[in-house]
Design a protein around this nucleic acid. Structure first.
Lengths: 146, 146
DNA sequence: ATGTATGCAAAACATTTGCACCTGG
DNA sequence: CCAGGTGCAAATGTTTTGCATACAT
């Protein structure tokens, strides 16, 4: 029950927060922009402001409920934080996002940071490519239609 | 001689372009925001507009003379492209940036992309950490003072 | 009740663009 | 001379903030 997640995070259980959390949990695409979320909630008849979506997402991020990524293209994307760290590979044609973890890469990063005299705190690895999905080229949604 | 670089890139040799290229080549810090460049040129008495800095940097990027990175913090940073691909590790305290290349990581990325059915086109790996430089904590310039 | 959340409109940023003027070849 | 470049101001797109109202507890 997601209302418990909110309470655990010390956040009051309100309609907008519930709806946003719900959407993040059930949406088929797991990486959404604030605008994506805003539009989908409007479409499903909710009355919500874009500013609230941003505020709530920022609070969720601070609470560790979601993580924010900066893929190319201006808008930040948000995803539910499910505890397991991972990196991303993004299709520059259709926008598809896959997640992966590679222990070798993780390990090498530690070695590199250490060699350069840094205490590693975080990292961001994004691979950009073209997916070989036949439906990819020309698939809608690639450029987040205005 | 940098005027040749400009000609090779098919760009007319103008004062603003020369100055920006010169600054990128000689600045002690190799990763600069458009605003950094703008301010430094103003400080050294040049008459230039911020819009021109952005335009020129964008052209330079298209010509392969500079590369643009999106570290955390809103502003893009630019660096002279010296041909050798590399990734970055950034100190979240003082803003220091170090470059590195790790063939193991590069190799693993190819394997991962292939396994997930992507043709890899580009990637961005940024490690965030705290450098152990004694002068780091409290060092000016970390937050790009407004 | 009452302190916190929300919606809306306005502000704040980073970056881009329109346009009249200037400049390099 | 003349296409292309520049500075300035205004426009854009994304995210944040101020404020009066609405809502959870």
């Amino acid at each position: 029950m997601e209302s418990q997640d909110l309470k655990n995070a010390g956040l009051k259980v309100t309609l907008p927060r519930m709806k946003i959390l719900e959407l993040l949990e059930t949406a088929t695409t797991h990486h959404l922009t604030a605008e994506d979320i805003y539009r989908q909630l409007l479409d499903q008849g909710e009355e919500i402001g874009l500013a609230t979506v941003y505020r709530v997402l920022t609070q969720f991020e601070a609470a560790g409920l979601v993580s924010r990524h900066h893929f190319e293209g201006g808008q930040a994307v948000f995803e539910l934080e499910r505890g397991r760290h991972h990196d991303h590979i993004v299709c520059i044609q259709c926008g598809k996002v896959e997640e992966f973890v590679d222990s070798t890469i993780e390990e090498r990063q530690k070695v590199i940071a250490d060699r350069l005299g840094f205490d590693i705190k975080d990292h961001s690895l994004i691979i950009y490519g073209e997916c070989r999905n036949p439906k990819c080229k020309g698939k809608a949604g690639a450029k987040r239609g205005k």
